[in-house]
Write a protein that binds this DNA or RNA. Structure first.
Lengths: 129, 129
DNA sequence: ATGCACCCTGAAGCCACTATAGGGTCAAGC
DNA sequence: GCTTGACCCTATAGTGGCTTCAGGGTGCAT
């Protein structure tokens, strides 16, 4: 499997795959005579794991931790659970922040009567007073 | 007013104020004999405007646009309205994405029975299959 | 004279990629 | 055998919005 195939199979850009390799998230694959990277099923599995973790919002450092944990089959999954729980909390905090923002913006827009800047409620709300 | 005073009054880090100046968001202030920046009320107003816009989630480019618009008192506020509307849409999109994420994480955590990694539902969900 | 809080500049670092420059490889078609 | 075009390679710089760091200077009190 060449890098483009891996890219298509995982929905990951080629540059991102090379970036993950440089970051040590994916082991360096063997090469063809023409210096092309050659991947196997293990690479595909690992990259899929990384992408799903990223899609769930984990940082690359968290993904690294999850990968390490997932290799240690006999260990308790408490650490995994804690990582996921922390991530959930962080997502919930972000949602709350954005909802507050949403309310503020909606309220500003509600007050805008489409006149001139001088009487614009939005600009007024931003300007200090 | 020295940079530290402006920092305290606006809740902006000193380094960030210097960064805004370098970015052209705040005009370069005059200096004391000792080369310290000296700010006045106009600077305070402008920085407050920037911070409030940032708090509402506008990018620095959008802030630049808002600042330009706010100087043009006679212009219609349609452009301001459009910027705010776009920002609201973007916030709403982010909320939806995060809520999907929240549901997924919560569901994973729900299934975790705190056993070993080998039987961990979270790792299982991340691993390809 | 010494300490301390504050100020200065310029450059590098953060995250997770993305883009760009400048090239090499390989199979197909003429 | 030569070209075309899709693909691959490396190394470096750029993105946004700051933050941090190195290495110094200022100003006031003790």
């Amino acid at each position: 499997m060449k890098i483009g195939d891996l890219s298509r199979l995982t929905g990951t850009r080629v540059e991102t795959i090379r970036f993950y390799e440089k970051e040590g998230l994916i082991p360096a694959p063997s090469r063809t005579g023409g210096n092309y990277r050659v991947y196997d099923q293990a690479h595909l599995n690992r990259l899929s794991f990384i992408r799903r973790s990223r899609d769930l919002g984990f940082t690359l450092d968290q993904v690294r931790a999850l990968l390490d944990l997932s290799d240690d089959r006999l260990r308790s999954c408490g650490a995994v659970d804690e990582l996921a729980r922390e991530q959930l909390r962080s997502v919930e905090r972000k949602i709350e922040d954005l909802q507050a923002l949403q309310r503020e913006l909606a309220s500003l827009l509600n007050q805008c009567s489409q006149g001139t800047i001088a009487e614009c409620r939005i600009i007024e709300a931003l300007a200090p007073g």
